[in-house]
Structures are given as structure tokens and as C-alpha cells.
Design a protein around this nucleic acid. Structure first.
Lengths: 226, 226
DNA sequence: GTTTAGGTTTAGTTTACCCTAAATTTTTCT
DNA sequence: AGAAAAATTTAGGGTAAACTAAACCTAAAC
């Protein structure tokens, strides 16, 4: 198992994350996510298929092979351990760790990651609530729904949000929301309107959250919590 | 000041270290140190000269410009801060940190390095005794001599050794030598023979150190210590 | 069932960085 | 000084990974 280039690692990681829903990943999705031209993605896909890291059905999409998935999960584990370490040990905010982890994930040795994981107590989730794959590639599955799907009058617990938009993360934190924050949905305006929620905290005031943002906030519902 | 590639960073760092004695650095030295063919070094030197990171006198050698030197010192600072952090905070041995730092030095952000430096208390020296350049590129100068030059009957203090040979580092540690260890030179065999030293520690026994190794151990002499 | 729009692939370039082999310059030796 | 040896550079080539432009599929629309 020879070392993979930084580019290849990025492709595999991205393909894994785009394909989590189970559907094959299209070239254009991949190109979008990696911010490269579709033709470039096409070329790399051919290489990755030759390396048997993925299977490619031309004009349809790609799916990772077992070995491709293992590689992808290794990178994702690194990324999330790094994020956790940076926040827990070095005191960084959750909005700034992604960028650093993006670069370090390719440079850090297996050993450093192991040592950092140990230092933060082998957590199951990163600072944004994303599950950290184990060394042998197991990923905790969670049943989460967008905040918009919790339902008026019900309550939920904010569990996860994507790590890649610092501004959004800062805004979420400024609302007093952190992984684990519980809330009740007071109102949801129709036609993809904003959601009004009340955090389950003393002296919390109702807050209005736009539909798009609310959709990005992945939550456990009351039923799941019970 | 646009970002430099990993290769360029390695060239600059290496040129700086080879040129510390003040002499221009020859293409072949550079090629040797970087483990590439001389022709490759020649080509890169042309590029670096175009970028005004160094000055090149064909068939003679190169010297870093101010901007090249600044860049080199930035990398060296990163490397040494990383080494210090890995030993101090993560408990790594001094023989294994070099390799990790070699890769991380190119990936770590200015900010991460600053934070790590802070975490280890802004030290002036790395675990091998090498001075850590400051953020603004100042380097502590030390007057050190090889252990072979301390002189029989005199004593000295082991202060620095190159960081890049894990086996040698492990052996030095196994002799009970660490940065700061004081010793007396009991004997030095002629014709580059071994040196016999006695560590200034209770119950220390005389130790015989081969000439080549003794030459790699950079020390302060008694005069300097006083 | 064509046509057309959109997504995908192929073809041909470019840049970075390495290589070997050949040519050239410098240094050393007689 | 002239020849041999050593170091350096130039020439030409390879691979990785990006690009643009053109060709090619697929699917939806008329």
C-alpha cells in the first residue's frame, strides 16, 4: 500500500463524502466540490480506476472500492482527529480548525494522529459533531434530521453541522448553539420560511433561524433522545 | 509574498543550513543534501534566482538573498518549534521528531506555529540544542566546538547535535548525554582516536566515544560556561 | 423521433519537478 | 602548459495534475 498523493487523497475523501447517501458520484459534483474543471476530474477518475481505488461507469459516476473507501476513511479520521485536537488542546474555535486540518491531514503521520487521538481521549465525534472513523474504518451511524424537520411544538438536540464555512459556524455559535444544545421548535413559517426556536436554557429568548441555515443544522429529534 | 512550494521551501532551508559557515553553496552539495541529481539542483537554482530568492554565480555556487534567507528562517523556525512541541507536549523522543517535523513544516500555518510556540513557552532552542529563529528572523549565535576540541583535562557542556540521524540520537541518549550534560575529557587518543569522558554526575563511569561521534557533539567549553 | 441542452470525455497544453546523457567549465595533476 | 578529472550546466524526456476547447453521450423537450 504505497503512499497516495495529496491530490488523490483529496479526491478519495471528497468522493466518500459526496457518496455517503449511497448514490454514485458524478464527475461534475466532484469537480464542483474540488473546485477544478470537470475535465480534470475526468482524468483523475481514470487514474483512480486504474489504481482500483474506485469503479467508474462512464457518463454515470464513480463508486469507491473497498480499498478506496479504506483510504478515504483514513484521511477523514485524520481530519477529524486534527480538528478535535486543535480545539481541545490548543483552544481553537470550531470555525477555524477546518482549514488547518485540510493541510495537516496529508502531512501528519499515522503515529502523530494516534498520539493526538489519545491526548483527546479517543472521541467519537469531532467539534462539529461529525463521527470520527475508527482506525479500522468503522463509522458511527447517526439518525439526524435537519432542524426544519423536527416539527413545531417538538424539541430536538443540535448534533452536527458541516465544518467548512467559518462564517456560518461563527454565526451559529453567536446564537448560543453548540453541539448538544437542546431546543424547542416554536414556529415554522410556510414556504421554506424561517424557524423559531427556544433553547432549553435559563433566560434563553426565542430565536429566528432562516430556512437555509436551519436545514444545515442536523439534529436528533425528541423521539431519538428518549 | 506568494506561497512557496514544498520543494522550494526545502531548497531554501537546505541552502541556508549548508551556507551557515558563510561560504557559497555548491550545486553538488545541495544535490547531495536533497538527494537529487545535480542537474535537478541546477535547474531549480535557475528558478530560485529568477524569483530573487538567491544569487547564482554559475559554476561557483549560490547565496540566499535577504528574502530567500527570511523564507529559509521561517521554515527552520517551524521545523524547530514543531520538534520542540512534539517532545515537550506529546512526549516524543528526540530521535523521532525530525521526520515528522520535515513534513509538518510545510503544512502548518503561521498561526499554528505561533500557538505551539506559546504552548512550549517560546523556547530559544529545540530538543537537539539548535537555536530557534525568532518570528522576525533573528538567530541566537552560539560559540560551540566539537567534543574533540574541548581538550584533555578540561570540561565542557554538550549543547547541540544534528537532528537527522535517529540511530545516532538514540545512542547518544543511551550514553546518558542530553543537551546540557557536563563532562570532563579524561583522554583523547591520537590520530583521530576515541575520546574518553566522564559525565559530571554521581556514579557516572568514564565513557569512550569514537572520534566521528565526538566530532558531531557540539559543546561549550569551560571558559565559555564561566 | 429529432433536436437541443447539459454533462462527460478526449485531445492537446502547461507548469512543476524530477531524471539521464551530453556538453561545458573549472580545477588538479604532471 | 596541456591533459585528465571533477563539477556544473544544458538538452531532452517523463510524470503528476491542472487547464481549455472540441467531441461525444444522455436525457429531456418539442
Amino acid at each position: 500500500m504505497t503512499d497516495l498523493s495529496r491530490s488523490i487523497e483529496d479526491y478519495l475523501k471528497t468522493i466518500y463524502m459526496l457518496g455517503e447517501s449511497g448514490a454514485p458520484v458524478q464527475t461534475s459534483e466532484l469537480a464542483d466540490a474540488l473546485r477544478i474543471a470537470p475535465a480534470s476530474a475526468s482524468g483523475m477518475v481514470r487514474r483512480l480506476a486504474e489504481l482500483e481505488l474506485l469503479e467508474h461507469v462512464p457518463y454515470r459516476g464513480v463508486m469507491l472500492t473497498d480499498s478506496g473507501q479504506r483510504a478515504a476513511l483514513r484521511i477523514i479520521r485524520r481530519h477529524r482527529i486534527l480538528e478535535t485536537y486543535l480545539t481541545t488542546v490548543l483552544g481553537w474555535d470550531w470555525d477555524s480548525v477546518h482549514e488547518e486540518a485540510e493541510r495537516l491531514e496529508h502531512a501528519a503521520s499515522e503515529r502523530l494522529i494516534a498520539r493526538m487521538a489519545e491526548a483527546v481521549g479517543d472521541p467519537k465525534f469531532d467539534p462539529h459533531g461529525a463521527p470520527i472513523p475508527t482506525v479500522d474504518g468503522r463509522v458511527e451511524r447517526q439518525d439526524l434530521v435537519p432542524m426544519t424537520a423536527v416539527g413545531v411544538g417538538r424539541w430536538g438536540e443540535f448534533r452536527q453541522v458541516s465544518d467548512d464555512d467559518p462564517e456560518r459556524l461563527r454565526y451559529i455559535a453567536s446564537l448560543g448553539f453548540h453541539v448538544g444544545t437542546r431546543f424547542e421548535v416554536l414556529e415554522a413559517k410556510p414556504f421554506n420560511g424561517p424557524v423559531t426556536v427556544l433553547r432549553q436554557e435559563r433566560e434563553a429568548e426565542p430565536q429566528v433561524i432562516g430556512f437555509e441555515l436551519a436545514q444545515a443544522l442536523r439534529c436528533r429529534t425528541a423521539a431519538e433522545i428518549a
